[in-house]
Amino acid sequence: MSWDDLKGLKYYLGFAVVVISFYIYSNLVGWRWLNTTKTTHEQGASRSHSRGYFYHK
């Protein structure tokens, strides 16, 4: 592969760098893109409410 080829592929290689960087970031923060588990986020009840029904196993 020559330098001219690298220059010709610069857009693809640049795209690859962006995609791979995103992949690395996602793996570092535990982000699975295609997740079959549907998760909702909400600012929930207070800690004391939960503790009221605390069941230790």
Binding site: M1, D4, D5, L6, G8, Y23
Partner: peptide
Amino acid sequence: ITGFRAGSLIIASLAILILM
């Protein structure tokens, strides 16, 4: 396409796959 050869794209793609 001008700018690169098909063989270079194959090499680049294989290198990216190995990196992945």
